[in-house]
Design a protein around this nucleic acid. Structure first.
Lengths: 148, 148
DNA sequence: ATATATTACTTGCAAAATACAATTAATGAG
DNA sequence: CTCATTAATTGTATTTTGCAAGTAATATAT
């Protein structure tokens, strides 16, 4: 049988490496987590702080400070919710949108390049496999209880 | 067409989450990077500091300090190389080996559980796909130059 | 062989990231 | 109206990080 962990370890390390080095856009330099935050704000529709923090599994206090930094960098905007005054809705500024988009384009370009080493059939198989994996993982129950 | 980045982002986030929460073995609590370090020391044969640091793409100074911590925790051993006195060879202590093995077993159990949601054919397809991906990524050249 | 460069690793900082506890303010439930 | 809950922030302390500068050993060049 295969050592599945080995395969995943290598895969995620490579992908992590990619992410890591790809976060400077022009004069703007952001960290990996910050790029994840931008990505999620861009993806969700007027999310609250809690929502994003939960999605990327980040402690809310750390997240709060990261958002403060991103606001100072003029990449993120925080708007008080009309419906619930405790809540702040997050959105990207024009510059934030630009940064997020640039990173996204470049990531997809990189992935295209990776996939260019495969034939059409392999490409489709791989894509379908990742979808399968994502589904299987979301179904899984045994996640992350402390060992022993 | 697919949004490949989206697929990868979800996949690696899930896998990262898994890794994150699965690093306490008995009374020993280690961080994600520390578990990666143990994993690589276990895998390679008497590696040097440089070798491991490079494999997991970690700054050597940060790595040096992490090793100091792991030695204090009695998980890692540092032996001066006879061939080159600048070099230290890394190995796991008995306890370190136990921790690494326990984490590995549990990770593979989790992955088995994930794969249990697929049929035999899907399993094989997915495994083959990840191998393909890893190969393609290692072939790729366009990694990680700063954008714009 | 001897000076010089390179390599492996360590320490001195200073900045950034993290998370627990406690706080403020707003909302919901009884 | 009161009390519990929720969203978000701040206080504080720890950990992680990485550049710059250092030490010691090896390799290279003259």
């Amino acid at each position: 049988m295969e050592n599945k962990r080995e395969l995943f370890q290598v895969l995620t390390r490579r992908f992590g490496l990619l992410n890591k080095n790809c976060c400077s856009v022009g004069t703007v330099d952001i960290s990996l987590v910050q790029s994840h935050i931008l990505y999620e704000i861009d993806k969700q529709i007027t999310p609250s702080m809690q929502q994003i923090a939960e999605t990327i599994a980040m402690d809310i206090t750390t997240f709060s400070r990261q958002i403060q930094t991103l606001i100072k960098m003029d990449l993120v905007k925080k708007t008080p919710s009309a419906a619930d005054k405790r809540v702040y809705l997050l959105s990207l500024t024009v510059q934030g949108k630009f940064v997020a988009t640039t990173i996204d384009v470049s990531m997809n370009e990189y992935l295209e390049e990776v996939f260019s080493h495969m034939n059409e059939f392999e490409k489709e198989t791989v894509i379908r496999s990742i979808k399968l994996l994502n589904q299987a993982m979301s179904k899984s129950s045994v996640c992350c209880t402390p060992l022993i």
